[in-house]
Design a protein around this nucleic acid. Structure first.
Length: 203
DNA sequence: AGCACGATTAACT
DNA sequence: GTTAATCGTGCTC
């Protein structure tokens, strides 16, 4: 059981997003493991490239704000933010310290603690437990308390474990979801990655 | 101090 | 396919 460490995260967001497919996101809640394999992820702001879809680039002329401060910090930490007045989104920080690079985890294939996750999700069927960024956050009890959490701490409450990667020829890519008003070309850049045919992908 | 809106979801028709 | 829910954030006045 190997925990992914800083060097894994300290790379380009698009590379990390693809390499995260197949890895296991683990949440320790009241001593119990809730987990799932990552099957869908999106890259936001790779290296120093501009990305007007990225919170770090869009707000405050690309400078940190209280909300986005974690994004500008070192890799291997969690960036958790609140949106639509009710939903939490879980990201991992990638790239070098000082750049607002991140990967949004969009969907998991549930593995451990399924009953507990279902209890947290109004007993929804397995297929609708963690197939969306806000859904998986609810299932794994991810909220503002985990913003800034270190994912490389073996005594922490959330981390990502090594697991067999998705075969390269099974990785699909396409435009990111929900960008709405984001200008081109970023709106259409194919920086969303998922495992071909996996039924837990959000769409 | 006020306001428009969002890296979404669930429940509608 | 459409829409309400719901509030923190960042921008403008």
């Amino acid at each position: 059981m190997t925990l992914l460490l800083t060097p894994f995260y300290a790379r380009g967001a698009r590379q990390v997003a693809q390499d995260l497919l197949g890895k296991r996101l683990v949440r320790l809640l009241d001593g119990r493991r809730l987990s799932g394999r990552i099957v869908e992820a999106e890259a936001y702001c790779d290296a120093a490239e501009p990305d007007l879809a990225c919170h770090g680039d869009r707000a405050n002329r690309g400078r940190p704000t209280p909300r986005t401060a974690v994004m500008f910090g070192p890799p291997g930490f969690a960036y958790v933010y609140f949106t639509y007045g009710m939903h939490w989104m879980f990201n991992v920080i990638t790239g070098p310290d000082g750049q607002a690079n991140a990967v949004l985890i969009r969907a998991l294939e549930p593995e451990e603690g399924i009953e507990l996750m279902q209890a947290r999700r109004s007993k929804r069927p397995l297929s609708q437990l963690t197939n969306g960024p806000a859904r998986l956050a609810q299932a794994l009890a991810i909220d503002r308390a985990l913003n800034g959490a270190h994912l490389c701490d073996p005594h922490g409450v959330i981390w990502i474990e090594d697991a067999p990667p998705a075969p390269p020829d099974a990785i699909c890519s396409g435009p990111r979801i929900g960008l709405g008003k984001t200008p081109e070309p970023w709106r259409s850049m194919p920086w969303r990655y998922w495992i071909h045919g996996n039924k837990f992908v959000s769409r």
